[in-house]
Computed example of a mutant assay.
Amino acid sequence: MGVVETLTSRNADFAAKQFSSDLRLMPSLKTIVIGCVDPRVDPNAVLGVAPGEVATIRNVGGRVTPGLLSEMVMLRKVVQAGGGDIGPGWEFVVLHHTDCGITRLEGQPEMLSAFFEVDQNQLAEQAVSDPVAAVAHDVATLRADTRLPGVRVSGLVYDVKTGLVDTVVKP
């Protein structure tokens, strides 16, 4: 059996045993988790999130880039179009992890500077090789963005060796 057949078979099992048509478009915890695409670090599994509780956005490194900020603004517009808003009462959680693959690109400053949309001489402040410093940087970036007012922002680092998260920036 190929991958697609395996996945669609698992979907049929999900639909039969776990699916709920009662889930709402808005996450019940009014929370957005920003995490990495690394398959070892599924934010919902790592944080014990149930379906419908949080929205999750994943990218390379789980980083807050200009592209991610644009996506967050667009998401806010979607929520506003439905009569709500992302603002006070909402939480953003930045989730980075140890042994992140993005560190393998440190020798490619041209690629990293394009990803972060910064000059190569500004790459050091992105703290690519230090997940704790990177979380602090990304939380500060989110907190400073005036297009996302009133949201509480925190930062966690997941250890891929122990399975535990550490709160490195409190909300």
Rank of each mutant, 00 (worst) to 15 (best):
S28R: 10
P109G: 00
L29D: 04
L7W: 14
R24L: 08
C100F: 10
G163W: 00
V73L: 06
L7R: 13
Q122K: 12
Q120H: 10
G52I: 09
A45G: 03
V3K: 15
R76Y: 01
A81E: 14
R104A: 13
S20W: 11
M74D: 08
V41I: 09
Y158N: 06
P51Y: 00
F115H: 03
V93E: 07
S9R: 12
L123S: 05
D119W: 08
L69N: 02
A114I: 10
M111C: 04
M1V: 14
L75H: 07
S113A: 12
V118F: 14
G35R: 08
V73A: 12
D42T: 13
R24T: 03
L25R: 03
F14N: 12
L164D: 09
S21H: 03
D166I: 11
L142R: 01
T56H: 01
D38H: 06
F19M: 14
L156W: 04
H137F: 04
L69R: 03
D85N: 14
P66W: 04
G89W: 01
S113V: 11
L95I: 09
L23V: 03
P39C: 06
V160F: 02
V135Q: 04
G84N: 10
G155L: 00
T98N: 06
S21A: 11
S20E: 05
V153F: 06
H137E: 15
T146E: 12
R10G: 15
D22C: 08
V79N: 06
C100P: 11
D85K: 06
P27A: 03
T141S: 07
M72L: 15
G2W: 11
T6D: 12
D130Q: 00
L148A: 02
D138C: 02
V46M: 01
R63D: 05
D13C: 07
